Simulated assay, not measured.
Amino acid sequence: MTFPERFSNLPEYAFPRLRSLLDAHAPGGEVVHMTIGEPRHAMPDFVGEVLAENVAGFARYPNNYGTEDLLGAIRDWLAMRFGVTVDPDRQIMALNGTREGLMNACIALCPETKGGKQPVVLMPNPFYQVYAVAAVTVGAEPVFVPATRESGFLPDYHALPDEVLDRTAVAYICSPSNPQGAVASADYLRDLIALAEKHDFKVFSDECYSEIYRGTPPVSALQVAQEMGAAPDRVVIFHSLSKRSNLPGLRSGFVASGAGNIDHMKRLRAYSGAPLPLPIQAVSARVWGDEAHVTASRALYVEKFDMADRVFDGIDGAGAPEAGFFLWLPVADGEEAAMKLWTQTGIRVLPGAYLSRTVAGENPAKGYIRVALVAPKEETQRALETLRDCLFG
């Protein structure tokens, strides 16, 4: 039996790799999971009530693109949060979380060729792994652009040669970034959108961590694009309730863009998408309309940011990020650090190299570990102190 060769060079996904690295060794203490970005703060207290009120909806096929109530709630949230104006019927589509949208947008919107050549899909390195799989799926060339401390943990797409930029069909950007927690400023996004206008490619902006921050709220690429007067289809943004509202199991998010892009994505979804069940859409509409739970959850993260700053005070590069909920800690070698933590303390973290790709013999994330700050404060405090003493003591 033969299999498609296009996926043969994909590295094993991060978490199976981590299990292969650690699971043959006994933990050195009580196991503490700090690997997966699964929020553990309280979800909104009205979720069960709304779900129960709408349970009869499981007996009906759901609206493929989003109910009127859900799309209206998303429109209102975008206007409130970012000051943007969108037509809910033509410029928004509901998603089963952002991963579905980030994949299917590339399938729907990346052309087979660009200027008669193989198209390029740009992505930061390290990156959310679906970006690379999406590029490979559509037959594009994935180009991994370092997002290092020197570049502010964001990719410098301007540094690429014109030959690459002229073939570029899609550029992924994640802000706040996973795993580093860097926030793209309005100037950064303005320059990126101008570059996309010059070389005629689309910007896919993964913004699922936008509501977890300290200080200034992150801006949206759609917000900047509208302020610039950029072509409506130039930017595609993706949001989710997983991180914002501590509902990773709800699998609910949305994509917003110009009407042309959304029309193409709807055509694909009509054949291959998985629409949200009607009770889930009802819950989602209510959740997008409530900010009180978001504010409370963000305050807890800010407390943990401050805690991390205190724990790692004096250790260069080891403080908490601007946003998101991961620490991106510099170490000599990520795999060695993860193994040491596991076998000596029982703390489980993710080597940075598992989120990155080696290019020209260099992996920009090899010297990092990713640490999720999703546990309750007391557990997080103990784990961070133990981690510090083990790796930096």
Results as ranks from 00 to 15, higher is better:
residue 257 S to Y: 02
residue 384 L to M: 07
residue 225 A to Q: 02
residue 148 T to A: 10
residue 130 V to W: 12
residue 230 A to V: 00
residue 393 G to A: 13
residue 248 P to F: 13
residue 272 S to A: 15
residue 312 F to N: 01
residue 343 T to F: 14
residue 234 R to I: 04
residue 133 V to Y: 09
residue 178 N to K: 14
residue 253 G to A: 07
residue 391 L to A: 12
residue 247 L to Q: 07
residue 233 D to V: 01
residue 142 P to H: 10
residue 104 N to R: 15
residue 208 C to P: 09
residue 331 V to K: 02
residue 129 Q to R: 13
residue 273 G to E: 11
residue 250 L to Y: 04
residue 376 P to L: 11
residue 1 M to C: 08
residue 337 A to H: 07
residue 90 R to T: 08
residue 390 C to N: 11
residue 177 S to C: 06
residue 374 V to A: 15
residue 119 P to H: 01
residue 124 P to G: 03
residue 358 T to I: 09
residue 29 G to C: 06
residue 213 Y to H: 03
residue 224 V to Q: 07
residue 234 R to F: 02
residue 199 H to R: 13
residue 172 Y to L: 08
residue 18 L to S: 11
residue 195 L to H: 06
residue 337 A to Q: 13
residue 386 T to H: 00
residue 102 L to F: 09
residue 263 D to A: 15
residue 7 F to N: 05
residue 134 A to Y: 09
residue 52 A to I: 12
residue 63 N to Q: 15
residue 198 K to M: 06
residue 355 L to Q: 11
residue 105 A to G: 09
residue 8 S to I: 01
residue 112 E to W: 03
residue 350 L to S: 05
residue 54 N to Q: 11
residue 336 E to R: 10
residue 262 I to F: 01
residue 278 L to R: 08
residue 127 F to G: 04
residue 290 D to Q: 15
residue 166 D to K: 08
residue 59 A to V: 12
residue 179 P to V: 07
residue 108 A to K: 00
residue 294 V to K: 00
residue 221 A to V: 03
residue 51 L to M: 15
residue 146 P to F: 14
residue 211 E to P: 00
residue 259 A to Q: 03
residue 358 T to C: 12
residue 151 S to V: 10
residue 81 R to L: 03
residue 355 L to I: 05
residue 41 H to C: 01
residue 54 N to M: 10
residue 58 F to D: 02
residue 41 H to L: 03
residue 38 E to Y: 14
residue 137 T to S: 14
residue 174 C to R: 12
residue 106 C to W: 00
residue 386 T to W: 00
residue 100 E to C: 06
residue 244 R to Y: 11
residue 150 E to I: 10
residue 154 L to Y: 02
residue 386 T to Y: 01
residue 87 D to P: 10
residue 121 V to T: 04
residue 173 I to L: 14
residue 64 N to A: 15
residue 202 K to I: 15
residue 232 P to H: 01
residue 331 V to I: 04
residue 30 E to H: 02
residue 225 A to V: 03
residue 197 E to F: 05
residue 101 G to V: 09
residue 261 N to E: 05
residue 329 L to Q: 01
residue 26 A to C: 01
residue 240 S to M: 02
residue 242 S to K: 12
residue 114 K to G: 06
residue 69 D to P: 12
residue 78 L to W: 02
residue 301 Y to D: 04
